[in-house]
Amino acid sequence: MGQGYSLTTLSAGSATIDVPELSDLSYEKSLGDGRLMKCIRARHRNGLVVVKVAMKPYASMKLDRYVNALLEERRELAQIPNALAYHRILETPTNGYLIRQYIHSSLYDRMSTRPFLEDIEKRWLAFQLLCAVRDCHARNIYHGDIKTENILVTSWNWLYLADFSSSFKPIYLPEDNPADFSFYFDASGRRTCYVAPERFLGTGSLNEGTGKLTWAMDIFSVGCVIAEIFLETPIFNYSQLFRYRAGEYEPQHVHLNKIEDKGVRELVQHMIQLEPESRYSAEEYLNFWRQKTFPDYFFNFLHQYMYTITDPSSGHGPIGSEKFEESDNRIDKIYYDFDKITYLLDNDADSESIKPRESTPKKWNDVFLST
C-alpha cells in the first residue's frame, strides 16, 4: 500500500564507486543504505571523503539539470564559513555521485558523545547554525532538509551545514502517504520529522505545490534543531507534526518547558509557529536575541576568529612547510593571540574592537579535492 516507487525514481540500489572516474578513491565502508542514495566512506590521498551514490533506473536518463544546479550551489556556498558543499559532482552512464569531505561527527552524534555539551557550547552551535542559514538565504540558497544528521561538528565545535538537497528532493509531500517522506527525508529511520508543516499538501492540491522552497520553511527546521540541541531529544516525529498542525499536540507543554533558559524557549517557540508569515528571518532572530540568548562576543569576535582558525587555508605556514604542521601553526596563532582573546572575551568588547574581514571562498584543493 503505497510502498512501491516509479522506475523513474533514483534508487541507491547496488551502487558502487568502482568506476574509472573515481579511481583516486578507495572504498572503506558503507555509512548507510538509504533508498534514495547509498552513502559510502572512501579514502582519498589527502584524507577521508563521503560519497553519495544514486543509481540511474535506465542508462538514457540524464542528470544535467541537477548537476548544473549543484555546481551553481557549490559556487555560492564557497563564500559561506559555516556551509560545506559537495566538492565533486559527477555523472556517469549508470550513476550519479556527490562527494564531500568526511567529518567525524554530525550534530546528532556530538550530542551523545563525551564530554557532553555545556550550555554555552549549545548556544554557540545554535548561533553558528543561524549564521549559516542567514548567509545561505542571503544568496537565495535554501537547504530543504535541515536536521541534526545534516549538520556536522568538528572537534573545535565549528559547525558546518551540509548535504544541501533542495535541487533534487521534492518541496511538497502528500499528507496522506508517508512513503515519500520515508524515501526522501528519513534515511536514518529515526522517524524524526522537521519538515515544515506547510510542505505537506492534500491529494487534490499536491500538483499545485510547484513553487520553490522559502526561507520560512528552513526556519521551522532550524527551530526544531535548536530545540533538540538543548533538550537532547527531538520535539517532533512524523505523526506528532501532523497532530501539531491540527492543533492536537503542543510541543511547549510536552518538551519546550523543559528548556531552562527563557530566551532559548521563546526563540524556539517563535521559529516553529504554524504560520510561515509569523516567523522571522535568520538575520532577525540573530539581532533580536542578541544579548538575550547569544552574547555579544559571538558577534564581535568569536565567530570571525574561529573561522580564521578552522579555515582550511589559514593554518598554512610558509611555502615548503609540511601539511602536518598546520595544527601546530593554528595552536601557535592562539598562543600569540591569547592576550587579545582573553581581553575581548572578558570585556565583551564592542563591535569596533575587532573588524571582521570579508569571508573568502574556500579553496577546495586545500580541503581535499579538485573539481
Rank of each mutant, 00 (worst) to 15 (best):
S370L: 12
L125P: 03
Y66E: 07
R43A: 07
K262H: 08
P81L: 03
S313W: 09
D350K: 11
F220M: 02
W364P: 07
S359Y: 13
S351L: 10
L241S: 03
T192Y: 11
M217I: 04
S30E: 12
E260N: 08
Y244Q: 07
A69C: 03
A59P: 15
R245K: 12
D337Y: 13
W158P: 00
E248I: 01
K147Y: 05
S351T: 06
S166I: 00
R279P: 10
M61P: 00
F299Y: 15
N46S: 10
T233D: 07
K363I: 14
G204S: 01
A54Y: 03
L10M: 10
L152H: 02
I309K: 09
T16R: 15
I226G: 00
L213T: 10
L107S: 12
L90K: 06
R123L: 08
R191G: 13
Q128W: 09
G144E: 10
G247V: 14
N68L: 07
Q101D: 05
L22H: 04
E198K: 09
L98P: 11
F200L: 11
E284V: 05
L90G: 12
P170H: 13
N300K: 02
A78N: 05
M271A: 13
Y160K: 05
Q269I: 01
F185W: 00
P361Y: 07
D339Q: 11
L274V: 05
P93T: 13
D109S: 15
L345C: 01
S182F: 14
D145K: 08
L241D: 03
A196F: 03
D145V: 09
W158L: 05
F324N: 11
Q79N: 12
E325A: 14
D296S: 08
T233A: 15
T94C: 02
R110N: 01
I319M: 08
R190L: 15
Y5V: 13
D145S: 09
F200S: 06
G189I: 06
T308L: 02
R199T: 11
I89R: 02
L173T: 06
S353L: 05
M37N: 11
L71W: 02
I146C: 05
T9V: 14
R100I: 07
F183G: 03
D119S: 12
T192K: 05
P20Y: 05
G204H: 03
D163W: 03
R41S: 09
P356E: 12
G211E: 14
P93Y: 06
R75V: 12
E277V: 09
S166M: 04
F324G: 01
K212V: 07
S205V: 04
I334M: 15
P170D: 01
F116R: 12
S6T: 15
E325L: 10
D180Q: 09
E232K: 10
I103G: 07
A216S: 15
R100C: 10
A59Q: 05
Y58F: 08
S167A: 15
Y97M: 01
T8A: 14
K340Q: 11
E91Y: 10
I146N: 08
K62E: 08
R265M: 06
E260H: 11
